[in-house]
Amino acid sequence: MTRTPFAVTRSTLFVPATRPDLVEKVGRSGADVVVLDLEDTVPPPAKAGARSALPALIDLLTSLATGTRMVRVNAPDSPWIGADLDALAAGALAGLDGLVVPKVDGPGSLDQLTKLADRAGLPELPILAGIESAQGVSQVEAIAPRVAAVYFGAEDFAADMRGRRTSHNTEVLYARSRVALAARVAEIPALDQVFFDVGDEAGFRREAGAARDLGYSGKMCLNPRQVRWSNEMWTPTPAETDWAVRAIAAYDEVTTRGEGVAFVDGRLIDLPVIRLARAVLAAAPRVTTEEQGA
């Protein structure tokens, strides 16, 4: 499996491969990553038809000049994964940037996927691995160095723990934090859990803000409205960018004089703060021309 980095991961939007009527809308949504789904949103009787539709749907997304284009296959231990990979090898690869692999429980899941991909004659592709179980979280430090990105699936994790899912997310805080930490150590993006109430903008933004605070680089989305909210949450505001520029300038000035700290707006600026400021500026160019004019 290759580890080609994703360009931008503020928003990852899923669309069932059984819904060609939605694909053009999704392709024009502004999502940084678009995923054609063969897994949870496609019932078993419809999976064969969804696989057959992939080449045309990927061609459509390519024509729309979307960002990163991926397919979510079924889990490595599912009865459908072999047919998914065979379908991709048979002609659905053109325009595809990688695979989303759900329910990765450890290195063994990746080994199984590699064997099946080799058998199907698939070339190596970047993998976005789903960490969605107690076993997956416990093994995430061994998973992250082998993939291009990870996502945390809170609903499946809570169900596996036999816990109770709540809106305050306390029950998944440890796992959510551990996935983000493992991704940072491996220097790959981590994508945050799905927010299921698609009409609750304030709730989405609260959860996305907490995810950004934890170090996540974007969020998985269920519809185009969430894409806009997620893109905004992971794009530095003008005030954040202005502060970062002033902080770096002040720090450069004091270090030139042989000093170690500066103050901006009453806040002490030292090297750790400068690292944060540089991260803000690195994220700022992600804003597209269309978003600037919106």
Rank of each mutant, 00 (worst) to 15 (best):
G91I: 03
L222D: 11
T241C: 14
D200K: 02
W243P: 01
A31F: 09
V273Q: 06
G67V: 14
D37M: 03
L113Q: 08
L122G: 10
V101W: 03
V264M: 13
L271W: 15
G163Y: 11
P44G: 00
S230I: 14
E201V: 11
A154H: 15
D59S: 13
R28P: 00
W234D: 11
T289H: 09
A90D: 12
D197I: 00
W234H: 13
A87Y: 05
D118S: 05
R28S: 03
R246M: 04
E39L: 03
E290M: 01
L125W: 13
H168C: 11
V42W: 07
M220K: 08
L271P: 13
G95D: 10
R162I: 06
V42S: 06
F195P: 09
T62K: 05
G121C: 03
A182S: 09
S63G: 12
G293D: 13
L116C: 06
A210M: 14
T166C: 04
P43N: 02
Y251W: 15
T170D: 15
Q226V: 12
D118W: 01
V8C: 12
D242H: 06
G30D: 00
V35Q: 01
P145G: 05
T288P: 14
S138K: 06
S29N: 01
A202H: 04
K219A: 08
